[in-house]
Write a protein that binds this DNA or RNA. Structure first.
Length: 602
RNA sequence: GGUUCCGUAGCUCAACUGGAUAGAGCAGCUGCCUUCUAAGCAGCAGGUUCCGCGUUCGAACCGCGGCGGAAUCACCA
């Protein structure tokens, strides 16, 4: 935090003279002073008492006195129990703020040791092509995209990759159902979005498949056996074989239907505002990794069983035995992930590799990384699974086959029309054109959705109740957007937008009567780099989201208490306008990290 | 059953990674639009941080033991 560095230096410097013993940097810990106490930064002295040999209060008092007389930073101090509250000179707050204002973008380049030119590889989204995206995918996509922005803001190069799961039995199910029951229906003929159309046949397959099972069990067959013997399932499996053998008809159907899905996904991705630098298709990558298995066998990392299947024994690590190649020589999920990881390293020479994948795959990634390590790849240690928890409905988990999903497109539509309704009620769009209004509704609706998802710690399971639409009041995206728009409006009316840089220097240094609300706002503004850094370390957009809310909230309180554009005091009002302008810039920047766009007016 | 994650106000979430009297927003109740945006501001009420023991100056956070929820342990991906 601001001033922490300097103050720590002073404590270390003065300690030996005061107490006859020296202290290490890690023993000196500062925190922001809580609002109810006098002061700006607080030194927690408990951990220092074993070096000072004195009681906490006594230690704090001596240090406080020393800092006031020697450091030139601290104007005053008070001691409460073992907490030494330090007040920083107002002028220093102002000059810190001023240096930030005068170098608008530089502060984003500091923090986190961005590793030279090597990129960070970030995989996210990874959809199946047999059904449309739902709320769970939204969480994945928003998280992945936001993490990429946060890493970039910390000075990293990021390569965003998506791997599309475009093959397998589940794809064949939709294909088969379409072939049997589709009557040649296309997105054009039905007016349906391609991914929804394909999803419809996936559900249809399941319906008829269940019918078959029921019929078989009614005639006395065991349920497990019925699942295997159902004609539809057998046909689907045959289709998969045809696909693997390159049957032209099957491939043509596969290409056509996947094409529909990609078109649909593109629309959804675009609305979500996410994008990728490279897309991998599983149909291209599923054979990768076999060579790695051979090498692993030679090195003795893997072993084969009599039937020819290849395994790794991880029981000594407290895990199980894991299959890495089937007895028929085909690769499994693990095999291809090994292969793609190696391929990506060869292609990009990444400094680290992140996977944004749901926590149901925690075990898979644990094993994946462990195997890579055992195979001797040094970069295995740079891999990280950014695991996030599921989105739950009040009724429990979403299940696409049972129709208990919140569809991504539907949800976005709903959010946008809700935004339109509320905006209309508040009468804010009377002077906007139809196109401008529509654009505004989209910004607000999507802002609400994105903030709702991203403000929650990724590791926590979150609940979404479709019956209660996402809020537009309080701790929400629209509140942040509203604050931004209001600041912009004030600046427009004050008519000083263009002169700010000329004014800022003079007005900041001349104005010394810093009051509580102004100071609070300044403190929040100056915290931005720390928050950004923390967000990058934790890979958590939630840090940014909660910070942005606090910034907007603090501004609103400040704004309410003090008339910003009071012309009778040109210096103070100019200073306050500068503060407002700085806040707006930060809100815009922080929102950008979340993929939320902020409107100039709303 | 083994492993991993989670449990904070009625509800949805915070809590600077061990610090002071655990904070916001919804929902409920009170006030505030003749003044630059009321999607706002000020206030009231709401807590045994799932339970117990331990570690220490100090625990929502760390350790152990329970209870509750979830995920995973496939020749699926």
């Amino acid at each position: 935090m601001v001033f922490e560095q300097e103050l720590t230096d002073w404590v270390i410097k003065g300690f030996p003279d005061l107490f006859g013993k020296s202290v290490q940097r890690e023993n000196v810990s500062f925190q922001l002073t809580r609002k109810e106490f006098e002061g700006d930064l607080t030194l927690v002295v408990f951990s220092l008492t074993k070096f000072s040999g004195k009681a906490p209060e006594e230690t704090a008092k001596l240090l406080g006195k020393y800092l006031v007389s020697q450091s030139g930073i601290v104007s005053d101090y008070n001691v409460i129990k073992g907490f030494l509250n330090l007040s920083i000179d107002n002028k220093l707050w102002l000059s810190k703020l001023q240096s930030v204002m005068n170098t608008p973008d530089n502060r984003l380049e500091k923090s986190m040791k961005a590793d030279s030119d090597k990129p960070v590889l970030l995989e996210y989204s990874s959809p199946n092509t047999n059904k449309p995206l739902h709320l769970g995918h939204i969480r994945n996509n928003l998280l992945g995209y936001s993490v990429s922005r946060i890493l970039q803001a910390n000075g990293n190069k990021v390569v965003k990759v998506n791997v599309v799961n475009d093959r397998g039995i589940h794809i064949c199910k939709s294909m088969l159902a379409w072939k049997k029951y589709g009557n040649g229906e296309t997105p054009e003929s039905s007016g349906m979005k391609g991914d929804h159309l394909v999803g419809k046949y996936y559900v249809l397959f399941d319906k008829y498949y269940k019918d078959e099972i029921r019929a078989l069990t009614a005639s006395g067959m065991d349920e497990k056996e019925a699942e295997k013997q159902a004609p539809l399932m057998k046909e689907a499996q045959q289709m998969l074989l045809n696909w693997e053998h390159g049957d032209p008809d099957t491939l043509a159907l596969w290409k056509m239907m996947n094409g529909w899905v990609y078109k649909g996904f593109d629309i959804t991705y675009k609305r979500l505002g996410v994008d990728f630098d490279k897309i991998y298709y599983e149909s291209d990558t599923y054979l990768l990794g076999k060579e790695i298995v051979d090498q692993g066998l030679k090195k003795g990392v893997f072993y084969s069983k009599p039937d020819g299947s290849v395994w790794i024994d991880l029981t000594s690590e407290g895990l199980d035995e894991k299959l890495v190649r089937r007895s028929d020589g085909t690769s499994v999920y693990m095999t291809q992930d090994l292969g793609t990881a190696l391929k990506r390293f060869e292609e990009y020479n990444f400094s680290s590799h992140l996977y944004v994948v749901g926590n149901e795959q925690d075990y898979h990634f644990k094993v994946l990384f462990l195997i890579l390590e055992k195979l001797g790849y040094s970069w295995a240690s740079t891999m990280h699974h950014l695991s996030y928890n599921m989105v739950d409905l009040p009724s429990g988990k979403m299940k696409s086959r049972e129709g208990t999903v919140v569809d991504a497109d539907d949800l976005m539509d709903q959010m946008i029309s809700e935004a339109a309704r509320i905006t209309g009620e508040l009468g804010k769009t009377s002077d906007l054109s139809a196109a401008e209004s529509q654009n505004l509704y989209e910004q607000i609706g999507m802002g609400a959705l994105k903030y709702f998802i991203l403000k929650v710690d990724p590791q926590k399971r979150m609940l979404f109740d479709p019956a209660e639409s996402i809020d537009f009041n309080g701790n929400t995206g629209p509140f942040i957007q509203y604050t931004f728009a209001r600041i912009k409006s004030v600046l427009r009316k004050a008519g000083t937008e263009n002169q700010l840089s000329d004014y800022s220097r003079a007005s900041v240094s001349d104005y010394s009567g810093l009051n509580t609300k102004e100071k609070e706002l300044i403190k929040v503004i100056l915290r931005f780099p720390d928050e950004l850094n923390e967000a990058a370390i934790k890979y958590s957009p939630a840090v940014v989201a909660n910070y942005t809310y606090e910034l907007a909230k603090t501004f609103n309180q400040f704004y309410h208490e003090y008339s910003i554009a009071d012309v009778s005091q040109i210096d103070t009002s100019q200073f306050r306008l500068n503060l407002a302008s700085e806040t707006a810039k930060l809100i815009e920047k922080a929102s950008g990290l979340l993929g939320i766009s902020v409107p100039e007016r709303m």
